[in-house]
Write a protein that binds this DNA or RNA. Structure first.
Length: 337
DNA sequence: AGTGCGCGCCGTCAGATGTG
DNA sequence: CACATCTGACGGCGCGCACT
């Protein structure tokens, strides 16, 4: 990432990393430009001093140019407005802006610095950061929440994007919903016909719209599978082996993660059943974490793309500012002559 | 063809963070 | 505060590529 970034941009990125994990903000960039002339391509003792007047968000940036004669000139900058940071949350921007602008107000400054430290100590949430920014900057794509098709699906249960009526499990089995509402489970290890199991769905007329989740535990007692069946209602759990059982219910109950026990909780007394329950919970937790990790990686990629976009924007701004500075220098030197 | 290397993706764990 | 969620870190795996 960031390969080919210009020198100043890289410095800015590095300084961002100094502050916290993935924090940067245009306001602070402006302050740095003012306080660190060496970074703004203005040599020490230059005849022209440039101070970036803090321009509020959305207002044109004004640059104060001190001429050798002592005259001060307000120059309109090429950057019309500070760009919202890709990775800086609005909350953070507010705190930062307050901490910079109101340093004289000691009591508020103390509170701000405490809040600032508190925020800086947190790890960034890619989803939160980008969503907050996207609400402020329409150009920044919002990280997509769960698609509407997935609404009603308990978190962590992958939707099977398969043709209508045919679904594929995470263990390679195929689920077929027949027109009569029956669920057929086939194992591809066989030729697709042998080993076919059929489950009946009898409550397809459940009143609440939503989706069906089929949870299926087969020969291995440690194997529990869930299937999301769009467009229908109810949750199905199938368990074969010692105690074959199938249950269908609507997914709107308060049971978390859409899990339905095949056996009633009151029957889980034997050590074996307790062990099975513990294993089932572990499998469920691993499955949810697996999905969470996938989602996190997707968000991280999006986050990095936004950072790279911001690098490009800052490089362009940097280039324009340098050009503007050269122009102002020429004006000043011509006036001095 | 066999091998080593780099890269990306994935699953899992542990700890931080968010939420009701 | 308990529980859920998120994310960094780690290791494994597969793939492509260059080299022998």
């Amino acid at each position: 990432m960031l390969a080919g970034a210009g020198q100043m941009t890289m410095e800015m990125v590095e300084s961002q990393q100094d502050d916290s994990a993935g924090d940067c903000m245009p306001e602070r960039d402006a302050v740095r430009l003012q306080n660190q002339p060496g970074r703004s391509h203005i040599s020490q003792g230059s005849e022209v001093s440039v101070a970036a007047a803090s321009a509020g968000r959305g207002s044109p940036a004004l640059t104060l140019v001190q001429l050798p004669s002592g005259q001060t000139v307000h120059a309109q900058g090429v950057i019309q407005a500070t760009q919202p940071s890709v990775i800086q949350s609005q909350h953070m921007q507010a705190v930062q802006a307050a901490s910079i602008a109101d340093e004289s107000a000691e009591s508020e400054g103390i509170v701000d610095s405490q809040r600032r430290r508190e925020i800086l100590s947190r790890r960034p949430s890619y989803r939160k950061i980008l969503n907050e920014l996207s609400s402020d900057a329409p150009a920044i794509p919002k990280i997509e929440e769960e698609k509407s098709d997935d609404e009603g699906v308990p978190s962590g249960i992958p939707a099977m994007a398969m043709p209508a009526g045919l679904y594929h499990s995470n263990t390679g089995q195929y689920i077929t919903i027949t027109q009569g509402g029956a669920i057929q489970i086939s194992n591809p290890a066989s030729d697709g016909v042998h080993g076919l199991q059929t489950l009946g769905m009898t409550n397809s007329g459940a009143p609440q719209p939503g989706a069906t989740i089929v949870q299926y535990a087969e020969q291995s007692p440690h194997s529990t599978q869930q299937y999301f069946v769009p467009g229908s209602q109810g949750v199905v759990q199938a368990a074969t082996g010692d105690m074959p059982a199938y249950q269908i219910r609507t997914p709107t109950t308060t049971l978390p993660q859409g899990v339905v026990m095949a056996a009633s909780p009151g029957t889980l007394h034997s050590p074996q059943q307790l062990a099975e329950e513990a294993t089932r919970k572990r499998e469920l937790r691993l499955m949810k974490n697996r999905e969470a990790a996938k989602e996190c990686r997707r968000r991280k990629k999006e986050y990095i793309k936004c950072l790279e976009s911001r690098v490009a924007v800052l490089e362009a701004q940097n280039k324009k500012l340098i050009e503007e500075l050269e122009t102002l220098k020429d004006i000043c030197s011509s006036k001095a002559d």
